[in-house]
Every structure is written in structure tokens, then in C-alpha cells.
Design a protein around this nucleic acid. Structure first.
Lengths: 235, 235
DNA sequence: CAGTGGTCTAGACCACACT
DNA sequence: GTGTGGTCTAGACCACTGA
């Protein structure tokens, strides 16, 4: 269990030199040939360690100039946006689901734009509530494009959430996310059992597959009580 | 400009097969030797393409079992949390900075815990406002640990924001982020020129270096008007 | 046990960017 | 020009795991 690949040991060793302050931001570190000699391995092995650390933002590499320690900025953070049911069960809580509304409706402007359609066109609108230990955890406000996903018109969504159904039936290939804060409107507040216009955290997702826009969804969480976190410090 | 490395072309080619629906989630794709033959290259070249796509969550690989197309879940999203001034200037707006408060104060419970200190101990507390085109864009509420960063006690922070100062003087090596929504308290609301208890998006960051906790900071953005976005769809 | 992915090596050539 | 990183190859051995 203490056994790992050489390139892994080299990565850790190099990272340690950075974390310990031995190498500071801006410093140029030895070249690949030098390091290969130090670690008694092939240049390709050192190269892989350096490349991966550069991908993680630890180093900056330039031909001829060499490899330098990057200045840490608060950049790219890997955020996990897990499936609700898994997220809830992971905390040990009991997961519950309820369909609040399901109807063919005219697309409001935002949803229309996201699905690349004209406002007023019809789409399947779903409102769902996800519970953790019987307490409201998340409200899901979803639009499904009936052009791309005609099968959805026949799905009841009363037992299984649309997320799980879509993953099984209409896998997406592209997605975009946005995160923002807003004031809970009447419906969201009622569903979450919080005062109207309380702050809520909104996670918005648009997905596509090869046929076109699949779905536009907003997840609302009660403010303060829910946090998106970075699983672990990358560096 | 249409020239790229073989492993890149192979990555795109494989990705295309997934995006087009040629290979669907759960499908097992050909083995490395087969693909190496198809693409007329060494197995290592194909291996790199497959490994990177697996790292990106497109494939799942298991010895003996082979490589399969992964079921897309809404998982790990790479979020950019850029430096405020760069973020503002990137939009073409003029960046402005103002120090609102600077004092040695007793740590409130949350900040104390983040800095791994007892509540009531003293730390440097800064409140700053960042403007885009002379309009309030972000409020920064920061605590700096005077044990780890004694130099900060001598820094004025009246011209330069603490973020830039810290990056230059006390690079961190580890960081944790959390994102949540909250109601603007009196001070934040006043600074951002929004009604009290309006929703704000909060980004919280704790950083460490080899000496210990460096800083605990919360950035507040007006709700609705600010969004954290994924730069591009990974898949 | 056999097949698949995981890794390493030694050598080679190339592309870029400093000097 | 020249040194650095970027990539490819051919071959090898290993480790895991499904049949």
C-alpha cells in the first residue's frame, strides 16, 4: 500500500519542494534531464510528473526558458455538483422525492433562450422537490425540450426524478453551468419552507446532445444552510 | 494551425465518436492495441489519448474489462475564480479599489475556526470594496493571521488590495473554497448600494502555507447580477 | 489464467524561444 | 544557434481482474 509508480513519487517529491517553500513562486527548477538524473529514471518519467503538475497549475513550462513555480492565484477550482439523491444519501440522510408540477407550458424568455427556441413555444415544465430526512433540501425547476426528447412527454416523473430519467434515456454530451444567488420567489419559498424572498443559492445547467438542446434546469437551495465546496485542496 | 499532435487528433476523433452517439454510455470501445492499429501509431500514443479522456470523465477504464463510455453525471465542474481586478478589466470596465476598514480585532467564531485559533484572539481585519466602472462590484471581508503573516501588520492596504499584496509576499500552498448564498448584512448592503438583506453570492476562501493558516476571506457579490460560470463545456 | 490497461525505458526528432 | 520542453516509437514488464 506504500507502493506507487515512480512518476507518482516524483510528483509528490516535487510538490513537497514547492509546499515547503524550498522552491518559491517564480523560481526556475532544474531541467528534465537533470531531474531524470537526480531521480535515476528516464526523462519521459520525469516529464510526465512535470506535465501533470503543470496541468494542475503548480508549474509553468516554456520551451527553452524551462520550468518555473507558478504564482498561485485563486484560479480554476474543481467543484463537485453531484446527483441530489447521492449527495443526500452520502450524508447518511434518507432521500425523498416529490413531483410538484408537470405540464406543457409556454417557454419564458430565459428558458427559451437556453433551449435555443422562441419564447412562447411549448416545452415540458417540471417542478420537483428533493428531501433529506423528510425536510426540503432542493427545489428543481426544469424545462425539457420536446423536440430533442419527445419520449419525455410520455414519462410520468412521479416516482423517479427527471435527472435520473434523462441520464438513463437521453445522455447529454455538453453542459454549461452557472451559479448565482437570488431571492426565493413565492413558489420556491413555499416548497423549501422558508420565508418569501429569502436568499437561495441557484445552480443552473443547460445540456445538449448531438440532436440539440436537451434540458434547462435550475436547482435552488436554501441560502446559508447549503454550500458548494471544493472537495480537497488541489495544491 | 491545423497541425496538431497525433494524440490530440486521436482524442478529438474518439470524442467525436462519443458525441455523435456512435459510442453510447456503457459501450465498450476497442482496446489500445486495436486502436493503435486503426490510427497507425504506437500503443503509448493511443494510451495517452485514452488516459486523458478518462481523466476528463469521458471514459471509464478497468484492466481486463477494457474501456467503456462513462455515464455523464453532473459531476466535477472546473470553475474559474479569477482575481477581481483582472476579472473586471477583462470585461473592459475600469477597476477601482477602496479600503473601507483596517483594524486589529478579536476573531469572531467562524474566522477563528478557519484560522485554527481561539475566538477572541486578535487578527488583522480588512474590509475592501472593488469597483467596476465606479460601481460597487464586490465587497471583500478578510482576516489575516498575524502569527503566520506578521509583515501584514505594517502594510497599509490603502492603494493595493490584500489579495495582490498577499500573492506577492506570502504565497499560499493550500486553499479551500466554499460558495453559498446569504442575505446582505447592513455593512455589505451599504457598501454594495443594495437594500439590506438582499441576496448576495458569497465565495469563501481559506488558505495555508507551510507556516500555517494565512488568511480567511469572504467575497460578496450582489445576487442575480453576478454569476460564476463554467468557461466551456468539458465534454 | 489470460487479456487488458498502467508504466517505464532508451532513443529519436521536432518546435519553439531565448541569447 | 542552441537548449529546453513536447511528442513519438518499439519493446518490455507488471498488476489487476474478469472468465
Amino acid at each position: 500500500m506504500s507502493d506507487q509508480a515512480p512518476y507518482q513519487r516524483i510528483k509528490e517529491s516535487l510538490l513537497q519542494r514547492v509546499k515547503s517553500g524550498d522552491w518559491r513562486p517564480g523560481d526556475t527548477i532544474p531541467g528534465e534531464l537533470q531531474l531524470a538524473d537526480d531521480f535515476s529514471c528516464a526523462r519521459a518519467t520525469v516529464h510526465r510528473a512535470l506535465r501533470e503538475l503543470a496541468d494542475e497549475g503548480i508549474f509553468e513550462r516554456r520551451r527553452k526558458a524551462g520550468t518555473r513555480v507558478a504564482v498561485p492565484t485563486g484560479r480554476s477550482v474543481a467543484l463537485d455538483i453531484p446527483l441530489v439523491d447521492q449527495e443526500i444519501r452520502a450524508t447518511g440522510a434518507e432521500y425523498g422525492y416529490r413531483l410538484l408540477a408537470r405540464a406543457l407550458e409556454q417557454l419564458p424568455p430565459v428558458a427559451a433562450e437556453s433551449l435555443d427556441r422562441a419564447p412562447g413555444e411549448q416545452a415540458l415544465h417540471l417542478t420537483c422537490l428533493h428531501y433529506a430526512d423528510r425536510r426540503p433540501f432542493q427545489v428543481e425547476d426544469r424545462w425539457i425540450d420536446p423536440g430533442t426528447v419527445p419520449e419525455a412527454l410520455d414519462a410520468p416523473f412521479d416516482e423517479e426524478g427527471p435527472n435520473a430519467w434523462l441520464l438513463r434515456n437521453v445522455p447529454w454530451t455538453d453542459a454549461e453551468h452557472a451559479i448565482f444567488a437570488s431571492a426565493a420567489d413565492k413558489d420556491v419559498a413555499a416548497a423549501l419552507s422558508i420565508p418569501s424572498s429569502s436568499p437561495v443559492l441557484a445552480v443552473e445547467r443547460r445540456t445538449w446532445n448531438q440532436k440539440g438542446p436537451v434540458t434547462f434546469v435550475r436547482f435552488f437551495y436554501p441560502g446559508e444552510s447549503y454550500r458548494l465546496r471544493t472537495s480537497f485542496a488541489a495544491r
